[in-house]
Design a protein around this nucleic acid. Sequence first.
DNA 1: GCAACATTTGAATGCGTATTCACTAAAAAT
DNA 2: ATTTTTAGTGAATACGCATTCAAATGTTGC
Lengths: 363, 363
Amino acid sequence: MSEVADFPPSGSDPAMARRIQSRVTSFDVAALAGVSQSAVSRAFTPGSSIAEAKRQRILEAARRLNYVPNSIASSLTTKRTNIVAVILGNLANPFYVEVLRTFIARLQAQGRQILTFTVDNGADSDEAILRVLRYQVDGVILTSAQLSTRMTSICHDRGIPIVLFNRYIPGSDASGVRCDNTGGGRLMAEAFLAAGARSFAMIKGDPKGTTSQDRVRGFTERLIEAGIARADIGEIEGQSTYDGAFNAVLGAYRRKPERLPDAIFGINDIMAMGAMDALRQRMGLKIPDDVMIGGFDDIPESRRHPYQLTTVRQPVGLMVDEALSILHLDEPAQPIEMGIDRQVPGRLIWRSTIPTPTASSED
Amino acid sequence: MSEVADFPPSGSDPAMARRIQSRVTSFDVAALAGVSQSAVSRAFTPGSSIAEAKRQRILEAARRLNYVPNSIASSLTTKRTNIVAVILGNLANPFYVEVLRTFIARLQAQGRQILTFTVDNGADSDEAILRVLRYQVDGVILTSAQLSTRMTSICHDRGIPIVLFNRYIPGSDASGVRCDNTGGGRLMAEAFLAAGARSFAMIKGDPKGTTSQDRVRGFTERLIEAGIARADIGEIEGQSTYDGAFNAVLGAYRRKPERLPDAIFGINDIMAMGAMDALRQRMGLKIPDDVMIGGFDDIPESRRHPYQLTTVRQPVGLMVDEALSILHLDEPAQPIEMGIDRQVPGRLIWRSTIPTPTASSED
DNA sequence: GCAACATTTGAATGCGTATTCACTAAAAAT
DNA sequence: ATTTTTAGTGAATACGCATTCAAATGTTGC
C-alpha cells in the first residue's frame, strides 16, 4: 500500500534523517557571517562590546542557520546556569501548586529556568539535593521538610544558596521564609472565640512539619490565654490530605457525636475541606450552626461555594518574592546569607464557616 | 553580649566564607586517590572499565572531598543532559497538576530531571521552546496548545524529540498522545441518553483547544445519531476554569431558566464543577433531578462529596507512559519518530450527577 | 595633521568531564 | 614457555562557549 517515501515533509534540512547531527555552533555562524567566533559570542551577550552593524549581520546568519546558543557550554565557562531548583513535597495540596505556579511565573519572567523535584512527604531531600548539586543550579528552593545539616553545609561550601519555604530546621542556620504560622494559629483562635466557641479541636497534619506544629501551638496558646481549659482543646491526627482529614473526623466523631466541639481548626485548607465534607455529608451537620470550621492557606478552592471557608491567608506572592530575594540570584558574588528567617504575617479571611461577630469582611 | 565567633558551626571547610570557591573537580579527587582523572570519571560512570578496588578508593576520596560530578560538564561531552522539558499551559486545572505529578514521578524514578515551563493559555510556546533548545534537553513534553511548525522542525533538526500531550496540531507530523476525546464525548452522550435526557448543552472551553473541540464533536455527533435535533443541543462558551464555567452558566440560564436543558456536559471536570455550584448554590437547582451534569478528566476533586461527578476518566498514567515511550530517551541514536498519534480510550465513571439507568458502577 | 583616547576585533585559552588511543599487566589459550 | 586475549590504565583531546589580551580601527581635540 504505502511506498517508501511516504513520510510527511517537514520543511527542514534534507540531512535531518539521522539523529545527533553535527550541531550548529558559534563557529558555523562565524564562518557564514565572516567574523570570528568571539564576535558571535558577543552578539548574543547583552552589554558586550560589539558594533551594532556587525551584531545584526551575525544575528541574521544565526537565524539562517537556526542557531541557538548552547547554554550548557556557556554555563561551563560562566559558572552560572540560570537554573533554580524547586523541591516540592506535596502537589496534592493545592497550596503548593499555587506556590509552584508563583515561583515559575517569577523565575520565568527573569529568564531563568526551573528544575522541579518532588520528594515523598516525610522522605528526606538529600538525594534530590545531590542531584541538584550536579546540575550546578544557581539556587535551591526547598518546600519539603527534611534536610540534613550535612546537605546544607555542602551546598553552602559550593556557593549554592538554599531557601526553605514555609519550613525551618530548628538549630540550623539555613535561611528561610515562612508565614507567621504561630500568629496565624492565634488569629484563628481569636476568630473562634469571638464567635463564641468554648470547646475546640484541631486536625493536625504531618506531626514532623514545623508548619503544622506552629499553627497548633499558636492556636493552643491563644486559647489557653483566653482561659480555655486544656481538656476543651482536642487534637485529631490525620494524613495531611483531604482524605486524611475526612477519615480522621469520621473516626473521631462518627461514633461519639457528643464529643464534637464547637469549633474545629483544620491545619490547612485542604484538610478543613475534608473535615467539612465529612461533617456535612456523612454526619448531617450544619456549618457553622453545628460546628464552626477554620482553615489555613486560603487556596482558591476555599472561596468556592460548597466551602466558603473562613481561613488564614498566606501571602504567597510576597513570600515567593522574599524567598527569591534571599537567593540573591543577581549578585552571585555576594556571600550567601545564612540564618535569615523572614516571617510574613497571615491575614484572616472571613467567609461563612465561622459566624461573623459583627459585620462580614470578606476581602 | 555576643562574641565574634558565635556562628553555629557548620561542620564544613573553614574556607567557605567566600562564594565561588574553586570547586572540587575530578582532578582533585584523582590527586587525593593517586589516580588519573580518567579513572575518576570511570569510577562514576556505570559500566566503564575500572577495577573494583580502585573504584572504591576513588569513591572514598570523593566522599572525603564532598565531590559531586558536574553534570553540565559531562553533558558537554556526552551531548545528553538527562533533562526533559515539560511545558504546561494551565496549572489552574487540577488535571494538569496530575499530569505534571505523573511526569515528575516517572522521570525522577529514571534518574532524569524536569525543566518546567508554563505558557499563558493561548499564548504560543515558541519562546519556551527556544529556551528549552538552549538547554539541550533530551526531550520535550508539550501540553500547551500553540506550537508553530517552524519550531517542531527546528527541534527535529536538532534531534530533540517532542511529544504533544493531549493536543495535536492538524496538518503537522508532530507526534503526540491523547485521550480519545471524541470517543469520550460520545460516551458522555450515551450516558445522558440512557438516563433519558432529551435536551442538552455543552460548556465549551478554549475554542482553539483541540481537546475541547473533539469532545464537543463526539458528543454532538452521538446525539445527532440518536435523533436529537440540533436545536436541542446548546453551546455555552466560557473560560476554561471553574469561574469561567460558573459565570457562563449564570449568564446563560439565570434570567432564562426555561432554557435550561435536561443535561449539561462540562468539557472538563473543573468546568463541570463550576457549573454545578452555579446551578445549585445560585439557582437552587438539584442535580441530577433538575439537571444532569457530566464532566471529563476525572480529577481527584470529582469524587469528593460535594460533587460526585459522573465523568470520563482519562488514564493519565498510561498516557504519560506512552508519551515517554515515544520520546525514546533510552535510545538517543534512533531517528525521531514522527507522525505518531496514539489515542487511549477514556472510560465512563458513574457517580451521582447522572441518574444511573440500571445499577451504579463506581469503580 | 598628529597625539590621546575609546571602541572593536580575533587568537588563544580555560571551564570539567567523557572518551579515544596506545600501552601495560594479567589471564587464558596454545 | 610462548602467543593470544582480556581487563585496566593514563595522556591527550574534544565538547561549545566566554573571556582575556593585545592589536587594530575609529574618534576626538588641538
